[in-house]
Simulated assay, not measured.
Amino acid sequence: MANAQCACGALRLMLSEPPQLTALCHCFACQRRTGAPFSANAFYSIDCVEISGTSTEFIRTAETGRKVRMHFCPTCGSTVYWKADASPSWIGVAVGSFANPAFAPPAISVFEQSKHKWVQLDETVEHFQGLPVGQY
Rank of each mutant, 00 (worst) to 15 (best):
M1G: 11
C6Y: 01
A7Y: 11
A7G: 01
A7S: 11
C8Y: 00
G9E: 03
L11A: 01
R12P: 02
R12C: 08
L13K: 07
M14F: 05
M14C: 11
L15Y: 03
L15A: 07
L15K: 01
E17A: 12
P18F: 12
P18D: 11
P19Y: 02
Q20V: 13
Q20E: 12
A23H: 04
A23I: 14
C25S: 09
C25M: 12
H26L: 11
H26T: 10
C27L: 03
C27S: 03
C27T: 03
A29G: 02
R33G: 01
R33M: 14
T34S: 12
G35A: 07
G35T: 14
A36C: 12
A40K: 02
A42S: 12
A42G: 06
F43S: 10
Y44T: 13
S45Y: 08
I46R: 14
I46W: 03
D47T: 13
C48L: 04
C48W: 02
V49G: 01
E50P: 00
I51P: 00
S52R: 05
G53D: 07
G53V: 12
T54W: 00
T54L: 10
F58Y: 13
A62F: 02
A62S: 07
T64E: 06
T64M: 10
T64N: 13
G65K: 02
G65Y: 08
R66H: 11
R66A: 10
R66K: 12
K67W: 08
V68A: 10
R69G: 01
H71V: 14
C73A: 05
C73M: 08
C73E: 08
C73V: 12
T79P: 01
V80R: 01
V80K: 01
V80M: 08
Y81F: 15
Y81S: 10
W82H: 03
W82N: 09
A84N: 05
A84R: 10
D85A: 14
A86F: 03
A86S: 13
S87V: 15
P88S: 05
S89A: 15
I91A: 06
G92P: 04
G96E: 12
G96K: 03
S97G: 01
A99H: 02
N100Q: 09
F103S: 05
P105R: 09
P106D: 07
P106Y: 03
A107V: 12
S109W: 09
V110L: 14
F111P: 00
F111H: 08
E112M: 08
Q113F: 03
K115Y: 00
K115W: 03
K117C: 06
K117N: 07
W118K: 00
V119W: 02
V119H: 01
Q120M: 10
D122H: 01
T124N: 06
T124S: 11
V125R: 04
E126K: 06
E126H: 05
F128N: 04
G130W: 08
G130R: 14
G134R: 02
Q135W: 01
Q135M: 12
